[in-house]
């Protein structure tokens, strides 16, 4: 009989968490596709997760578009290609900066909020109370929040992209006089459908990652208030890492297409 040496503690915990996370995702699909659907709570979460994130995401997107253009301008002028700034910024924002930055801000704001909310509900027995009240807490809390994150993030990214490009337009106009129409025409000259579609599709996966990881960390929170803080923190860290990994995979797939 073969005897394997015991795994290091960290590896064992990592494998256990991965297994539990996989089971949690599996349960999400089983529960999510089976009636009864918590439509009212889903709409409420879309508002809480999506609409309420808009000011922060909009402001950040605007500043990024403006600053990116202002930082690029001297170098582009040096090489005499400042006319390409709209196209360069447009492609960078739509293909990469818009989705990844919005998703990271979303992870920071929503991932931590979901982790802390569910964690707090767990330690104060609100999840048990929900079950006793004839409600499936997994459906009511996890499925609605994850679907809401998955649906709202792509729309937030589209809005963030538009605001960011407007910031870039203002950035260009600090140095030279360029009409709004011409600015967008220059972007559209270099932007193709295959730049937009993969960038849009991957944001659904980013939203899913933020939602499900936030819920997982909160749902299995323990050790009182300390555990709630830890859940919120690890929800942000893990979902941020997941976003980068998913982005890397998305880039590889896009390159193959």
């Amino acid at each position: 009989m073969l005897h394997f040496p015991p795994l290091p503690e960290n590896t064992r915990l990592f494998l256990r968490d991965t297994g539990e996370m996989s089971r949690f995702i599996g349960r999400f699909f089983v529960e999510g596709l089976r009636p009864r659907f918590e439509v009212a709570e889903f709409i409420h979460q879309c508002f809480a997760i999506g609409y309420k994130s808009l000011p922060l995401i909009g402001l950040t997107a605007f500043i990024i578009g403006l600053v990116l253009t202002m930082q690029l301008h001297p170098t582009m002028v040096y090489y005499g290609i400042e006319a390409q700034i709209p196209a360069m910024v447009g492609i960078a924002i739509i293909r990469e900066i818009g989705p990844i930055l919005t998703a990271l801000i979303f992870a920071g704001k929503i991932g931590s909020s979901i982790g802390a909310e569910l964690g707090s509900m767990k330690v104060t027995e609100q999840i048990d109370a929900m079950e006793v009240s004839g409600t499936n807490p997994f459906k009511y809390l996890v499925v609605t929040r994850t679907f809401a994150a998955m649906i709202t993030l792509p729309f937030l990214v589209v809005i963030a992209d538009a605001i960011s490009l407007y910031g870039s337009y203002l950035g260009v106009n600090i140095y030279e006089n360029l009409s709004f129409h011409l600015f967008y025409e220059k972007i559209l000259d270099y932007l193709f459908f295959m730049d937009i579609l993969p960038a849009f599709i991957k944001t659904f996966f980013f939203g899913f990652a933020v939602g499900i990881i936030g819920c997982f960390k909160g749902y299995y929170s323990n050790k009182g208030t300390e555990g709630v803080g830890r859940s919120a923190n690890s929800a942000v860290v893990v979902s941020s890492v997941a976003i980068f990994i998913l982005d890397l995979i998305a880039v590889q797939i896009t390159d193959l297409l």
């Binding site: 707090s120 509900m121 027995e125 609100q126």
Partner: peptide
């Protein structure tokens, strides 16, 4: 529906 449960922490939804 026939068994009520009063939780130690009250478990009111915040």
């Amino acid at each position: 529906t026939q068994v009520g449960f009063l939780f130690q922490s009250n478990a009111l939804y915040d």
